[in-house]
Design a protein around this nucleic acid. Structure first.
Lengths: 244, 244
DNA sequence: CGTCAGTTTGAGGACATTCAACGGAAGTGG
DNA sequence: CCACTTCCGTTGAATGTCCTCAAACTGACG
């Protein structure tokens, strides 16, 4: 089995985690984190393509991305999958499972990654005294909702170039939020995944990259993208209409 | 001013509300609802086009739809709006405002409607002892997330017919959930709103309705749609590809 | 070095958009 | 109550964009 999951020694904890300032649990002081220790498993390592959960799985944990990246998707009857999102450190995965206790989407690692798993108890009363935590959860879910909204706005745009430009600008924003340089983007997803995310076919996405490379907006070497002309990228993402 | 908001006498409460079994707050017994009474304003009447909130507004309340219907949308720089969702009784509106305390989307009534407003306190500690309520909130937000995912799947489909068919089947499911007849659908949104929701232009949506009417799948009289052939509608929504 | 998955590029065609005009319903004011 | 305006929805013709099918290329890995 190529894709395995390993649990690090228990002491790994949150002390060394780079995502602490952004983390749902890390936001809070050490004492408070102690309250969660029995529900929290930190530093779970995932190899590329390792699945956190499948559609239909019973809901067990919420996952917080510590490092690396993930994709989430839904499988249709047709057989083809719709990519719902790409997830970077600080993001929460598995929210859709809370409702019925069953996941409606699937998620897997796009590269070597680490996550924390957080078990939500069945009986709500056990959360008494942890309302600070619940409030954090609410905010994390609200953020996930906003991200879905941004995705919907991208899918709503007709022009393919506009969609890709919007995606790249959004990715830059996420990089900045993480304190990473935002001119050198590393796409951890395949062209097919990106195409599904954007509501296009992979050939179109490939052509768009070539086109933006040709016109000096980007430099594209496979999955390594350098943003050369951010201003032009902005224009492309905001284009009024075709005639604009 | 044509669009006004009226507060009914305080005693209106939840006792007569049809949505009780589905309501975030109504799920719980009377005693528990008492705990929320200071945060809950029930039975707020909204005339058509009445806005619950605009993008940029400070977050004050979560809204629970009691009767009628709403749309939510984002306004782009371009000036045009992307419809994010249509909301029926039992749905929660305003989730996106929790994150920063500012709404990123807007919502307004599509017809004469009623909502309940629920104020989330600034300090999380005040939620201690209300964890049962918080758990309900989590589920409601999880449901909203699932609905966004369904919307994303619709937008990902290339064929316009497929999108509309998926939308109609989804609407039927929602009608059934509410205990309404699911063969007579009343679209409370305009063709333009529906087109934006589906990622199409309104002319295309209009043509699709005519087409489905012509082929005896639907009977369409403006916003009144009768489903004549549910099986054919299913086939259209699941079509493999163009060649299928 | 050979295989294979992922990506790029090309040619042709289908389908949704664009632009334009018309019809009908609802709402307004006399 | 009727004429008027306005909004919404429908239909038509032509254009253009993205999809489909196909083949070649690249890099990774055994």
């Amino acid at each position: 089995m190529r894709h395995a999951i390993h649990n690090p020694p228990g002491e790994a904890g949150c002390s060394g985690c780079e995502q602490q300032p952004r983390c749902l649990a890390g936001r809070f002081d050490e004492a408070r984190r102690e309250q969660l220790v029995s529900r929290l498993r930190t530093g779970i390592r995932c190899l590329p393509r390792y699945p956190l959960f499948h559609a239909g799985d019973r809901f067990r944990y919420l996952y917080i991305v510590q490092s690396g990246s993930f994709k989430s998707w839904r499988l249709e009857r047709n057989g083809d999958q719709q990519v719902l999102g790409f997830h970077l450190p600080g993001d929460v995965l598995g929210i859709d499972g809370i409702r019925n206790g069953t996941h409606t989407s699937a998620a897997q690692a796009l590269q070597s990654s680490r996550v924390c798993a957080l078990s939500l108890a069945r009986n709500p009363e056990s959360l008494d005294g942890l309302s600070w935590f619940n409030a954090g959860l609410l905010k994390a879910m609200s953020r996930a909702s906003s991200q879905d909204q941004e995705h919907l706005v991208i899918m709503g745009r007709r022009q393919a170039t506009q969609r890709l430009a919007m995606f790249l600008r959004r990715l830059r924003r996420q990089y900045r939020r993480l304190g990473w340089p935002d001119d050198e983007l590393t796409l951890t997803m395949s062209r097919a995944d990106l195409a599904s995310f954007l509501g296009l076919v992979l050939e179109t996405v490939s052509r768009l990259f070539s086109q933006l490379h040709e016109s000096q907006v980007l430099e594209v070497r496979r999955r390594r993208v350098t943003v050369l002309d951010p201003e032009r990228l902005r224009q492309l993402s905001e284009a009024e209409a075709v005639s604009g």
